[in-house]
Simulated scan of single mutants.
Amino acid sequence: MGKDIDISTNQEHFVREALKLGIRTDGRSLLESRKPIISLSPDLYGFVEIEWGLTKLAVRISAEILQPYEDRPFEGLFTINTEISPMASPHFENGKNTDDEVLISRLIEKAIRRSNALDLESLCIVAGSKVWSIRADIHFLNFDGGLIDSACLGVMTALQHFKKPDISVNGEDIIIHSLDERQPVALSILHVPICVSFSFFNPGAVEENIKGDLNEEISIIDCTQQEELLRDGTLVITINKNRELIQISKSGGLPIDATMLMDLSSRALLIAEELTDMVKDLLKKDEQERYKKLNLKMLQAENSR
């Protein structure tokens, strides 16, 4: 983070002792994730707000026509921009690209672009000359842990919700049609990666300041800010509903044995299935509401004639 955060010895002792008893300060079980609240913009395609416990963020997808990379003439572009300002938490500094922002951008870029979740070839207009460039802007409005998980969910929801303008190609000329002229076109999403973060605590680290036995290690899911300050190791599993393991990112000194890794991957799969189905239902309802508004608008226009 941008600024050092202090946590009192009493707070640290309380949190760690509670975790030993299987208790968390917000009432969740050790392996229980927070339930996100997803809000889709009724007016703008690709604008999504996520409430992940007390963590809040907004994601905006935009598109423009640019020239592709020379070594990838048939692929469109996809970029991610993150902004964590002091508005989200006083612990972040304004105008500085923190380690958190770099880590989030890299993990989501790997999860989406490198796994081909967004079909970049479908963004090609004229090979080697014109392609769609898709940009995801992530703005964190409040911070209480879970930045990676909430950001990944927000970006994937926004990408599925977004629709780019339809175009016509006449030689070298490209005509971009307004939404009134033609229906916008959805992006080609091949699969939906979901990031699930686990954190590890060493029960013996507080009193003796030593690494405890591997069998005593405590693992929890979806840390709050307070828990993130005290954890001894992290593991981010990116997986989709198709049971495809996309990436594993581990940091911290504590080891993870194969049995625990398999168990955590199974739990991550259940969360990915639940979140994917939730987003699918929300998008379906949003589409139905838009069709109702469109039909009502057309009916009013006919009656006014």
Rank of each mutant, 00 (worst) to 15 (best):
K250V: 09
N242Q: 14
Q67F: 07
F143C: 13
Q67V: 11
R113L: 02
T79F: 13
I38E: 05
D286Q: 11
C152A: 13
K110A: 01
R16W: 09
L19I: 11
L254K: 00
A63K: 05
D166R: 06
Q11R: 10
C195P: 14
C195W: 12
L120A: 15
A63G: 11
R60T: 14
R135V: 00
V169Q: 02
N81Q: 12
E217W: 05
A58V: 13
S266Y: 08
K297A: 09
I167E: 12
A268C: 03
L264H: 07
S89F: 01
L294E: 10
N303L: 08
V169A: 02
S188T: 14
Q288M: 14
R106F: 05
D6N: 09
I84P: 00
E75A: 15
P86F: 01
T259P: 05
T25L: 12
T55F: 06
V131T: 06
K20V: 10
V131N: 00
I50K: 05
I174R: 04
K280E: 14
L283G: 01
R106C: 05
G154R: 07
L235G: 05
P86S: 04
D277K: 12
D99C: 09
E287I: 04
R305G: 08
L229T: 00
K241I: 11
G171P: 05
Q247T: 12
K96S: 12
L31A: 08
D71Y: 12
I112W: 10
S219D: 02
D6P: 00
M298V: 06
S89Q: 03
H191V: 03
L230K: 01
L179C: 04
S304H: 04
R267N: 14
M262D: 15
S304W: 00
P68Y: 06
A272Q: 13
F78D: 09
H191A: 10
E51D: 14
S62F: 03
H177N: 09
V59W: 06
E17F: 04
L296H: 08
